[in-house]
Simulated scan of single mutants.
Amino acid sequence: MFSILIAGRLPQINFQQVSETQFVIPIPDVDHVNHLVVFMTGQIPFPENYGGGGNWPSTEGPTWIYLGKITNTKPSAIFKINKIKDNESKLGSSLAPALFSAFQHQTAIPSDGLLGISVEPLPQLDQQVQPNDVTPSTVASNVEFVSKMLNNFVNYVTSFVQNVPGTSEQIVPLSIVTTWYTNFQRRITENPNFWKQQN
């Protein structure tokens, strides 16, 4: 049902089912892994209104760090794992408690790495909290962001176009571009998702 892809390696599908709804896969040589691409193989979909939450074991105890989710409508995601250890002391409530407890009681967590996927209702996954710097992204969301950012830029600067006297050329003052950049940077700092409300 699931597969992972790490740059420079073959896709891996050797997930181990540890309960009715939980799966794990070892990640060898994890020190050289910055991102994991997790995707559904397309052979088996999630049950309706369910998805899979990606989790990473914490070194601080029997808890797991929530990385994000994949669903039937968004069947792939990129999980950023290279800063997890740096952030663990700051995570607090971002840790997902009690996940894979049966697995942890039976098996020691590998010293390299381990990815867990827990099949859960979508509303339950939506309530999970992702720690900073491990938020997953998808190619589609990155394309959407860039598209909306560029549309915002073009719409803004073209409203300040000036004609060059005696020619058919049009220019935009550099100060207008600088103002757009400053405003966009401020807005995305205040609300990283503001662009999702842009038409």
Rank of each mutant, 00 (worst) to 15 (best):
N155T: 10
Y156E: 07
I117W: 00
I44W: 05
S101A: 15
N132L: 14
L99S: 05
Y156W: 10
V139A: 10
Y50N: 07
P57C: 06
W64A: 00
G52D: 02
Q106R: 15
L122G: 03
P47H: 12
L99G: 02
K148N: 07
P121Q: 06
T107Y: 14
F79T: 00
V30N: 05
M40V: 15
N142S: 12
L122P: 00
D133N: 14
D112Y: 04
V146F: 10
V154D: 13
G68S: 03
L95K: 15
D126F: 07
F100T: 00
Q130R: 14
E60Q: 15
D126E: 15
V30M: 10
S93L: 14
S89C: 14
A77V: 10
E48R: 14
P121M: 06
V33A: 03
I65L: 08
Q127Y: 05
T107Q: 14
Q106I: 11
S111Q: 09
S93P: 08
G53Y: 00
I65K: 03
V134W: 00
I84N: 00
T59G: 09
L150G: 06
F153G: 05
I70S: 02
Q127H: 10
T135S: 11
L67F: 01
F103C: 11
S94N: 15
L125I: 08
N155A: 12
P57H: 05
N55H: 13
E120Y: 01
V146Y: 09
I65G: 01
S141F: 07
K85E: 11
L67G: 01
F145Y: 11
V134T: 07
Y50A: 05
I109K: 04
N72I: 05
Q128L: 14
M149I: 11
Q127L: 11
N152D: 13
E48W: 12
G61V: 02
K80G: 04
D133L: 14
V154K: 14
A140H: 12
N155M: 10
N155F: 08
L150A: 09
T135M: 10
D126Q: 13
P136S: 09
V143P: 03
I70N: 01
F145A: 01
P131W: 04
L125T: 03
N34Q: 14
S93N: 15
N49L: 09
G53M: 02
N132Q: 13
L91P: 06
